[in-house]
């Protein structure tokens, strides 16, 4: 019986599925972000962030938290800042 860890353990742990889940969880639970609505997709060594936040500083924090939790991946921050426009036409119900 071998005492060496199976080679597959590390690679399973780092499967894109789990890395994406780890990033998504960090975005929700890290106090710099507390963002629950950011979509995280990994394709090869590229990580894509999509969603909306309320300010430019928050957008930057989202990328920073993602980078910390996905070492070795290139993070593409496609998150946009919500623009608060003038109230529009009213709706009659």
């Amino acid at each position: 019986m071998s005492h060496e860890a199976p080679h597959s353990v590390a690679s399973h742990h780092d499967a894109p599925h789990y890395v994406a889940a780890r990033v998504q969880r960090a975005l929700a639970e890290d106090e710099r972000t507390y963002e629950l609505g950011i979509r995280v997709d990994i394709r090869g060594d590229q990580l894509f962030l999509r969603g909306q936040v309320e300010g430019a500083e928050r957008r930057a924090h989202v990328a920073a938290v993602a980078v910390e939790n996905a070492p070795g991946l290139t993070v593409h921050n496609e998150v946009t800042v919500v623009e608060v426009r003038e109230p529009g036409e009213e709706e009659t119900l």
Partner: peptide
């Protein structure tokens, strides 16, 4: 983020 405006108005 759904409205993308300051508020909606319903009459």
């Amino acid at each position: 983020p759904v409205l993308r405006r300051a508020y909606a108005v319903y009459c």
